[in-house]
């Protein structure tokens, strides 16, 4: 497929994030958690979002489904999906999109389900819009529990969440999300809370079901191995910015941004060995209340020089067709 650097034709794009900035108001100042994010989610493809803790992955994911915290504010930018700008959507319009065109799977399956209601009731509840009978809804619930390979699905309808294991609960969440037949499925670290074996199973399941149902997926993860396995495109985030994005192939085989390189370098077998978490790179994230003027990665970058302190790097086209927010990729630097 074509890389993201060449703007995809509009009909191939499900969702386009354009210059999105999100602030959190806190008593100790405004946190500029997302700054000028540009991304596209192609139809029927999986976009991976990676980056270390606190870089804004969840903030981005939640802004795509309108579930940002109360102290959050979209400072600028747009999120285009069809005729909608999701960044400026009224609450009632959001309710019409959620659970119909957009669905989400959460990080912790242990707490994502209502603890005092049966699985079956929760699966019926989310079908409240459908004008079909209760039995038909039940049948659909069972069908989707079977899709996510839950054994003895019919009997699970009467179970309460605490009676199921973490892996089973995450399968239930996936089944619920798919049951609504969304165009866009957002998964915020859906496997982080699970152990390694379960993680592999769930990722394989997600991949199969994504192909089967053909929905687009935004997959947030700490785990480079799963991203490589699942994603068509990848965006690497650092301190509230996208620092590199492109096809998974380009990013894993020819990373251009020093941050992406550091992530992959720390992983000796690159993506082949399943690393559970992102490698740690020396140094810490900059203070998001006052993002640095130049390159956000400067303080930790082994290759920084004077320009990195002065100029904020834009997204330059990279060697393998990706986009790179680093002056090293500035064609003008090569010329100099």
């Amino acid at each position: 497929m074509s890389t993201q650097s060449t703007a995809a034709p509009a009909d191939d794009t499900l969702l386009a994030v354009e210059g999105l900035s999100v602030d959190f108001e806190t008593p100790r100042g405004t946190i500029h958690a997302l700054r000028d994010i540009d991304l596209t989610v192609p139809k029927g493809k999986v976009l991976g979002i990676v980056g270390e803790s606190g870089c804004g992955k969840s903030t981005l994911a939640y802004s795509l489904i309108g579930l940002l915290a109360e102290n959050a504010r979209v400072a600028s930018g747009a999120i285009r999906m069809g005729d909608h700008d999701l960044a400026r959507l009224a609450p009632s319009a959001w309710r019409d999109l959620r659970g119909t065109r957009i669905a989400m799977i959460f990080q912790d399956p242990m707490t994502a389900l209502n603890p005092v209601t049966t699985i079956g009731q929760q699966m019926l509840d989310i079908q409240y819009r459908d004008r079909i009978g209760r039995n038909a809804k039940r049948a659909r619930a069972i069908e989707f529990l079977e899709q996510v390979q839950i054994p003895d699905a019919a009997s699970k309808l009467a179970a309460y969440p605490h009676q199921l294991s973490g892996g089973m609960r995450q399968r239930v969440c996936i089944a619920m999300a798919l049951l609504t037949q969304p165009d866009l499925l957002i998964a915020d670290e859906p496997t982080t809370a699970l152990d390694a074996t379960l993680e592999m199973q769930i990722v394989a399941l997600l991949r199969d079901l994504q192909r089967k149902f053909g929905c687009s997926v935004v997959f947030v993860s700490h785990h480079l191995g799963t991203v490589a396995e699942l994603c068509d495109d990848v965006a690497v985030m650092y301190a509230g910015e996208v620092v590199e994005r492109g096809t998974a192939r380009a990013l894993f085989h020819d990373p251009q941004h020093p941050y992406t390189q550091a992530l992959l370098d720390c992983d000796p077998a690159r993506i082949k060995v399943a690393t559970r978490t992102l490698p740690t790179i020396p140094g810490t994230l900059p203070d998001l209340r006052q993002p640095p003027a130049g390159c956000a990665f400067r303080a930790r970058c082994p290759r920084s020089w004077g320009r990195c302190e002065r100029d904020h790097p834009p997204l330059y086209p990279g060697a393998a067709g990706q986009r790179v927010r680093c002056h090293l990729s500035d064609p003008a630097e090569d010329a100099a």
Binding site: I65, L67, W94, R95, D96, L97, R98, G99, T100, A103, M104, F106, D108, T111, A112, L113, N114, P115, T117, D125, I126, Y128, R129, C173, M176, T180
Partner: peptide, 22 residues
Amino acid sequence: TQPHVRMARAFGLPDRRITRSH
């Protein structure tokens, strides 16, 4: 503030129902 309430919102359940049963 519990995650299952956010999940209910993510499915577009009506506010009244979220308040009542979640």
